[in-house]
Design a binder for these strands. Structure first.
Length: 592
RNA sequence: GGCCUCGUAGUUCAAUGGAUAGAAUAGGAGUUUCCUAAACUCUAGAUACAGGUUCGAUUCCUGUCGAGGCUACCA
């Protein structure tokens, strides 16, 4: 039983016996006590003054007295204005610490039998991953891990955008300028190689337009008539017809890209249980449209195109099938949702996709609901904001896109430089040192991108992101390494909790234990708010408090019981940091 | 034009409707005979504006201003 649930029950009882008033246990709202006041949990009295029919101070006194005399958990209390601050007994704190110490799965929930599908990443196969993908991938991965920790069965999936005109553009440019080049022969990652040809296409396309315009063609016309574009469109058509040569080239080039992506994913530490490909799904959804027409949810225009009217919902009309009968993006997403639910009958499905698609998903979910799909209420768009640069938005045309691989390299080499400057790697082998730089560089990057509320757009300053002080990944990692050192020196000989109950706890210790007691991971489900930033803030608070504790309290050479308490506390903090960072996909080193 | 997000210290971020709006960085002043100083302590500094609801508003509502996104028979 947690402290919180105990207090909730006790307060509910207090209202019953003192005021003959029923408050359901879960309605008792507690909040952490502000630092300046004594206590750890605070009960706000204002909402209940009508029940108590007394002043806030008086109500607090009465309830506080009742709790102190009837509950073993509450040792003391004070009332400040309308706030009842509760002081938890040392015995309770020690018991909590004992439970944390004894429990392998502390903070994690047992299986709840629910299935969640998390879709994230979902790149195009015509260029390498960039900074925006990093935010997407880290959020998607963390959310999946947090859900697992909360007892869900999770399947991580992505849908690869492996077809379409943009892919054909790279293909055309490669055929024209490639000379049989391959990632091996060019000594470059496959995704970067293809990205080059995509850029090359654009360059050529622009040159051709210019030429046509110079010859007197209007600009709009030239943009449609440029030979290389026509060639790309032809390639798309051939691909759709299943032309052997075209499909073979498409397969070869996409294969290179996948090799490149896989290397990047592996370095990022993210993974997937299943890949979906648009080349398999782009024709899906038409049967759903049929059903929608039959049931009258959708309607057909005179020209044969199919629409849904969402004006009742404050939205507009949306096209679902072109007049020539071909599918659009929305059609495909309808079909994909259906297929996925058949593959993996999820209770919830979370789409980690940028907020520029808010409208799309709003409409998608609404359509599925209107079509009566039973899973539609479990769909959720985890919308995240763009990553801005100090120079403004990332724009591929202006070459201001930050490449994911380049950025990771830069982070790791900065970690290396700073570590060497500080002379921190004495006694490390080469391999160990390299591993450390990797852990630090990527830890800094992941933490930096995850600590911000996903829904907000954020600013990424390449220089400031490689920061090792303050609210950063390396700060937390460093704390973990220091704790590990203490435990090594203590030879783990104090693994059993041996604390005398009459030994009053130090303020810093209490603060740490309070944080530990809060550890159980909770997904905020009320507002469907899946937030790695909460975990990040949590482990940072814990690490910061530990560092304060560390300077305030000399650990060794004192009373033996206190030594063991502090070692146990250190172990618990270390483990909690480990688990918390694990949920974010950030490693914590034993030494650094 | 319509719809959706977002406006908090110089800067980057916090704050289930609750107390004196927290951190971090940058600025100023300190701390190391001892367990990892990538640390710690002190100091100064902010809710875009105007109304409303409430015992109480950064949070909810309305309007103004500002930033971004969406508004394709593209994906």
């Amino acid at each position: 039983m947690t402290i919180e649930s105990h207090l909730q029950a006790a307060i509910s009882n207090a209202f019953k016996s003192l005021f003959d008033h029923n408050i359901s246990v879960s309605d008792v709202a507690l909040q952490p006590t502000r630092k300046d006041f004594q206590g750890s949990h605070t009960f706000v009295l204002f909402p209940y003054l009508k029940v108590t029919k007394k002043s806030p101070e008086e109500s607090g006194q009465i309830i506080g007295e009742y709790l102190r005399s009837t509950s073993d958990v509450v040792a003391d209390f004070n009332v400040v204005k309308g706030f009842l601050n509760l002081v938890i007994s040392d015995e309770t704190w020690l018991q909590i610490l004992g439970e944390i110490q004894a429990s392998e799965s502390f903070g994690f929930s047992p299986k709840n039998g629910q299935k969640v599908m998390v879709e994230y990443s979902s790149p195009n196969t015509n260029k390498p991953l960039h900074l925006g993908h990093l935010r997407n991938n880290f959020i998607g991965y963390s959310v999946a891990e947090i859900l697992k920790a909360n007892g869900y069965d999770v399947q991580k999936v992505q849908i690869v955008n492996d077809r379409g005109i943009h892919i054909c553009k790279s293909m055309v440019a490669y055929e024209k300028f490639g000379n049989g080049e391959s990632p091996d022969s060019a000594d470059i990652k496959g995704d970067h190689l293809i990205g080059r040809y995509y850029v090359r296409f654009d360059k050529e396309y622009k040159a051709e337009i210019e030429k046509l315009v110079a010859n007197g063609m209007p600009k709009g016309e030239a943009e449609k008539q440029a030979p290389i574009l026509l060639k790309a469109q032809e390639t798309l058509k051939k691909w759709e017809e299943g032309d052997d040569e075209t499909v073979a080239l498409w397969k070869k080039m996409n294969g290179w890209v996948y090799d490149g992506f896989n290397a990047t994913y592996e370095r990022m530490g993210v993974d997937f249980d299943k890949f979906y490909y648009e080349s398999d799904t782009y024709l899906l959804g038409k049967d759903i449209i049929e059903k929608g027409l039959e049931s009258g949810v959708l309607f057909k225009n005179d020209d044969g195109s199919v629409w849904i009217d969402l004006e009742d919902e404050g939205l507009d009309k949306k096209l679902l099938l072109r007049s020539d009968g071909t599918a659009v993006y929305m059609t495909q997403d309808l079909g994909t949702a259906d297929m996925r639910h058949a593959d993996y009958p999820f209770d919830k499905c979370i789409y980690v996709v940028g907020n520029e698609q808010d409208y799309h998903f709003k409409v998608l979910f609404l359509i599925l609901k209107k079509l009566g799909m039973d899973y539609a209420n479990g769909l959720y768009h985890l919308s995240y904001g763009m990553v801005d640069l100090p120079t403004g938005k990332m724009k591929s045309r202006e070459g201001t896109v930050v490449d994911a691989d380049d950025l990771m390299n830069q982070m790791v080499s900065t970690a290396e430089r700073k570590t060497k400057e500080l002379g921190k790697i004495e006694g490390f082998s080469n391999d160990q040192a390299k591993e450390l730089y990797e852990t630090l560089g990527l830890g800094a990057l992941k933490y930096f991108l995850l600590k911000v509320d996903p829904k907000k757009r954020m600013l990424f300053n390449p220089e400031e992101s490689i920061e090792f002080q303050g609210n950063t990944g390396p700060f937390v990692q460093y704390t973990h390494a220091r704790i590990a050192a203490i435990l090594r020196k203590a030879n783990n000989d104090a693994t059993v909790l041996e604390i005398k109950n009459d030994q009053p706890l130090h303020h810093a210790e209490l603060e740490l234990i309070r944080l530990l007691a809060d550890f159980p991971i909770r997904v905020k489900e009320a507002g469907e708010n899946y937030s790695p930033s909460v975990i990040a803030q949590y482990v940072y608070d814990l690490a910061k408090e530990y560092n304060r504790f560390y300077t305030e309290v000399p650990i060794f050479g004192e009373d033996k019981d206190l030594v063991s308490l502090r070692v146990v506390l250190s172990k618990c903090v270390a483990e909690t940091i480990n688990k918390g960072m694990g949920l974010l996909g950030v490693d914590v080193p034993e030494r650094m």
